[in-house]
Design a binder for these strands. Structure first.
Lengths: 183, 183
DNA sequence: ACCTGAACACCGTTCAAGT
DNA sequence: ACCTGAACACCGTTCAAGT
């Protein structure tokens, strides 16, 4: 038995900092280890392997997205906008890491939390059960695509905020239309 | 002077085949060179470097997406659906390559062609100029996000075709609504 | 239980040389 | 003009060993 020098949380913290400062390509087992003052092989006990490290990173991204979204608001639009804002901010912070979200199902706690926030908003808006699933996926998919585009540079030269306000309006319009037809 | 053993087109062809068969991680300067029966260094004259190779790949993806989209149809929905179908097919063929599209502006010929196809469809539908740009970007962004999600596995366990039909309807509804308010 | 050092099989890329 | 071979500075990961 021997006291642990590093923990899984520390490894992910250090990696996330490295990724936001120098991008995903700067994230190597060796560079992360150096940052923690430990040998590269020390990481393997805590994150499995490089893929495991990336998985851990992506889950942290999702909790960052889902975190701090107000819930019990009078207007269902508020938490939805908050989630979108979180998503865009996270994407800008980790542009090349963010696209990995397209490769994960919403099964980890963070991803589930983010999805549930959209669900709650849609329910509060009055969207009926049969349509809830699909509308949620459609909206989440658009948000993800928008944030990835903005952070990746696909929108270069365009006012992303104004662009998003337009899309936001259109989506809210879509939601209220769905509520209307259900009635 | 010396007869060229390989060309840029051949390099991209071979790389694309390799990517669709074994994924992006199997694409190395060495593996591509081996496939062409040439030394790794021979590639550098034709694609610059690894990043140049990826850039060439992504442009080919876009021309694949934009290609063979019927144009002069009576119904504006047809080319739009065709483009979406192309996008989804291409994404499924090169899942890990596809997300690189989020990092490119629509400036290369293939990307411009894809964007113009959406423009034409929206104009044919009757969308007025001031809204054209934003609606095009919103729709393209959603399509990209959907295709990336489907190909990446985010929709695992879900009937992606049915899912897409739902979204398609909603988007077409959005377009006709935009036409209404313009009138 | 946790960490290290050396080693292995890879990378992308430079550089000088060959035709 | 186009290609090669050797070399360099990296990777992720295994394995045996140390505490």
């Amino acid at each position: 038995m021997r006291p642990a020098l590093i923990s899984r949380v520390q490894v992910l913290d250090a990696t996330l900092r490295l990724a936001s400062e120098k991008g995903l390509s700067a994230v190597t087992m060796r560079s992360v280890a150096t940052r923690l003052g430990v040998s590269p092989m020390a990481l393997y006990r805590h994150v499995g392997d490089k893929q495991g490290l990336l998985d851990g990173l992506v889950e942290r991204l999702m909790t960052e997205v889902a975190g701090a979204v107000e819930n019990a608001d009078e207007d269902w639009r508020v938490p939805l906008r908050g989630l979108a804002a979180n998503m865009r901010r996270t994407a800008r912070r980790y542009p090349d890491l963010f696209v990995l979200l397209f490769q994960r199902r919403a099964v980890t706690p963070g991803a589930v939390a983010a999805r549930d926030a959209v669900y709650r908003a849609l329910r509060a808006a009055g969207v009926a059960e049969p349509e809830l699933d699909r509308l949620e996926r459609m909206i989440s998919t658009f948000m993800l695509g928008f944030a990835a585009s903005e952070a990746g540079g696909r929108f270069a030269g365009i006012d992303a905020d104004a662009e998003f306000r337009y899309a936001e309006e259109r989506i809210e319009q879509l939601i209220t239309a769905a509520v209307e037809t259900d009635r």
